[in-house]
């Protein structure tokens, strides 16, 4: 009996198909991607059945963190520059080129007006490291709060701004209500609450 010789097969596999798939997926992700903005606050947004997509232009974003810290920012860089100029005029500080650059690059900020010049004078690396304390919501009776001022100046810089509130789902109602109440003081009665989608629930409810 002669031994059956097993033919030696090469271990090389044809990678062409796999390569095709990989690059197909890659091109899909490249085309659909929109980079996450550098976030100042960790916010878990609640979900709702709202279907309205958030407009991507002319947004004044108010972020409320779990602990009640408030951050604000606008999406457009020209508006940011104007906004800073208005605040500098009101709080009487001088804007240097670096400060302006830092502010224009910043997605949203949350420091009080007195700290703002000092904060913006930092280098970009330091700027990202600093824990921002949130904008002051305190109203000292004749004067409005710094938050209200910031809203006013932002809307003066770009009257088309729409206001979106992005609050953490665990934030207390009190804090969010304070933001809303102060917005209403500034005659903002229409605004958007940012939520993540949850579609199936609504349909099943309607079927019932």
């Amino acid at each position: 009996m002669s031994k059956v010789k097993l033919p030696r097969k090469s271990t090389a596999i044809d990678m062409t198909a796999m390569c095709d798939v990989a690059f197909l997926l890659l091109s899909f992700f490249i085309l659909t991607t929109k980079f996450k903005p550098n976030e100042v606050a960790q916010i878990n947004i609640p979900s709702s059945t709202a279907q309205l997509p958030l407009p991507d232009k002319d947004i004044l974003l108010i972020q409320v963190e779990k602990g009640g810290k408030v951050f604000i920012g606008v999406d457009d860089q020209n508006t940011r520059a104007l906004w800073l100029a208005k605040m500098a005029e009101h709080y009487k500080f001088k804007v240097t080129a670096t400060m302006q650059h830092n502010f224009v690059v910043l997605d949203s900020y949350g420091v009080s007006a007195s700290q703002l010049p000092q904060f913006l004078a930092l280098s970009p690396e330091e700027l990202n490291k600093v824990k921002q304390p949130g904008i002051s919501m305190e109203v000292k009776p004749p004067n409005p709060s710094e938050f209200m001022d910031a809203i006013l100046f932002a809307r003066q810089s770009n009257p088309k701004l729409r206001i979106a509130v992005k609050a953490d789902k665990e934030a207390s109602y009190e804090d969010v209500n304070e933001v809303i109440a102060q917005l209403q003081e500034r005659k903002v009665n229409k605004f958007n609450l940012i939520t993540s989608g949850r579609a199936a629930n609504a349909e099943s409810a309607n079927k019932e």
């Binding site: 996450k36 709702s48 309205l52 997509p53 229409k190 989608g197």
Partner: peptide, 17 residues
């Protein structure tokens, strides 16, 4: 790096004070 789910907006109208 991608953000997949686009956030949705819930519109709120408060009565004017």
């Amino acid at each position: 790096a991608t953000t997949f789910s686009k956030p949705k907006a819930m519109e709120v109208n408060k009565p004017a004070k």
